[in-house]
């Protein structure tokens, strides 16, 4: 199974609204923590009022992930709160890794521009998540425009692409392949590599994904709507090790 190993210990996830940044960010954080890495996650979503990675706080903290988010009732506001701890996270110590889940579009990415001075001369991974089934980013031009807008707003450069095409429960392998092809074209046009392609649950085992020339990252659906219960997480090689079902808190239960 693919585990994503970012080239930098500062990983920032951007993209348009609804591209699936948070699901990707929480999954990547959880997978790295399960591998033994020490992970700090910052919820920097200042544009979305719901479905932010702070809802998965408990699940991440159980794995020793440090979650930086507005304290107390402020977590349930739509205020653009940026905590002082974030500056410290720009320079992770030792083997720690910092992961920023950034808000959608250029509006959300604007926040990163305040880190430009602190990031001078240092490498970072800035991943743009792309979903071909979202309006405004269903074409190469749309994705490139989003990339330009995010780069202009954040004053940083996108270093990698994540193909995360999906229709939630209605995702088929065709949708994933379509997303891979779109990301590949964006990559060819921009020179930015496709870092990985995501596939939810069992879809990651589909033989059709063998044609994908990028690592395929298996996601678990963690950010669930309140009426859904999480699917039992099966470990086919080790049925007795099947993990208990996990999810973000049924939302809005601080």
């Amino acid at each position: 199974m693919t585990i994503y190993r970012p080239t930098s210990n500062l990983l920032m996830i951007v993209g348009n609204y609804g591209s699936g940044k948070t699901e990707v960010a929480v999954n990547v954080a959880v997978q790295m923590a399960d591998e033994g890495r020490r992970v700090d996650v910052a919820d920097l979503d200042i544009v979305n009022p719901y479905f932010r990675c702070r809802e998965a706080r408990e699940l991440m903290e159980r794995r020793g992930i440090r979650v930086v988010m507005p304290p107390g009732a402020q977590a349930w506001a739509d205020l653009p709160i940026v905590l002082p701890e974030i500056k410290g996270m720009l320079h992770p110590e030792g083997d720690r890794i910092s992961l920023f889940d950034v808000g959608g579009d250029d509006v959300g990415a604007k926040l990163l521009s305040s880190f430009v001075e602190a990031l001078k001369g240092r490498t970072y991974s800035l991943l743009q998540v792309v979903n071909s089934r979202r309006p405004f980013t269903d074409t190469v031009e749309g994705c490139l425009k989003m990339k330009r807008d995010i780069e202009a707003a954040s004053r940083l450069k996108v270093t990698g692409l994540v193909a995360n095409s999906h229709l939630v429960a209605e995702t088929t392998v065709e949708v994933i392949l379509e997303g891979w092809r779109l990301a590949r074209s964006v990559s060819e046009a921009s020179g930015v590599p496709v870092e990985f392609v995501t596939a939810m649950g069992d879809l990651a085992d589909d033989p059709a994904l063998k044609t994908v020339q990028a690592p395929v990252l298996r996601l678990t659906r963690i950010m669930l709507p309140p009426w859904l219960r999480p699917a039992e997480k099966k470990d086919s090689a080790n049925p007795e090790k099947s993990a208990p079902a996990e999810r973000a808190r049924p939302i809005f239960r601080p």
Partner: peptide
């Protein structure tokens, strides 16, 4: 038209 993924608010606008 193919299915797209949309936020309720966007879908209401469209």
């Amino acid at each position: 038209m193919a299915k797209v993924l949309m936020k309720g608010n966007e879908a209401i606008g469209e």
